[in-house]
Design a protein around this nucleic acid. Sequence first.
DNA 1: TCGTTATAGTTACAAATGAAACCAATTGCA
DNA 2: TGCAATTGGTTTCATTTGTAACTATAACGA
Lengths: 164, 164
Amino acid sequence: MPAKRKPAPATAEHAPLQLEHFLPYRLSILSNTISQAIADDYQRRYDLSMTEWRVMAVLGRFEGLSAREVAERTAMDKVAVSRALSRLVEAGRVNRDIHDGDKRRSVLSLTEAGWAMHDEVAPMARARERAVLARLDAEERVWLERILDKLQAGNGGRATANRD
Amino acid sequence: MPAKRKPAPATAEHAPLQLEHFLPYRLSILSNTISQAIADDYQRRYDLSMTEWRVMAVLGRFEGLSAREVAERTAMDKVAVSRALSRLVEAGRVNRDIHDGDKRRSVLSLTEAGWAMHDEVAPMARARERAVLARLDAEERVWLERILDKLQAGNGGRATANRD
DNA sequence: TCGTTATAGTTACAAATGAAACCAATTGCA
DNA sequence: TGCAATTGGTTTCATTTGTAACTATAACGA
């Protein structure tokens, strides 16, 4: 019995998938690896989940969003956003006010503590992104950008993101 | 109050992330969208989870793997594999035998029913992949291949896949 | 202006996932 | 040999996540 046994392919007529060359699989691995690396930077240190960070990131970019708008921008569903927000508000990282003309809507923003954390985590995330892109040369980066644009254009509307 | 309110960027000094241009985020959305589309093809129809399908896919490609080898090839952790296998064996889709020289190891293969299902699902997955790649021209596909190779090369070994 | 329908958000419950402890068989080595 | 360390795999428990139902407010139409 050899040490690194590579079992022979199954019977020919079945045409099995070769996961290692299957685009959806490769994307999944790559995406999860990167997202997890970023998450590792802050999860324990700040007791912050990925969903929570994602919410904070959009609130850093756009102040005064409602929960639903946060859900749209993060591609999370509203329940996930609700849960993330209740933890963030609890932890004093996000302010939740009520919309003037509509008592159902919340008006969300980062607190001072929230901003402080944001300003530490955002650079770490950016650094990870740079580390990934550093594996590509300038030409490849341009193509990647273009390819992602085209691939995303095809997705009707349905989309969810789990990690970042 | 305009219909499609786009809140103004937060104060300048904070340098928030622009998720819509942030590579990890874009990859996450894209990957989850594609994986979910594939999963939608079989989840309800066959009462098959994504992890279960992933296990079946590698067993379709390599017969006689042990559970640990399946875990390696699917980038799932061994607990997830164990759970998927117990359901698959239960459902009569996978045979679990015991290795001759090592009573701890299992020797896994698809049953006839397992193969039948495999032969229906694999083409659907491939069709989805084709649909995605169809959005690119030949040159872009070549670059994508190359870029994925380089990006994946950078990942030490740690990697997990959730969806496919 | 009343009743229906739609929207924002939360709650409750079930299913999926992750981490650690665990069992059994095997290996390594004194 | 014999016993500690390792490996393959499962079980258990806590946490996370997804889905559906629910509350409250607002919008719409007769």
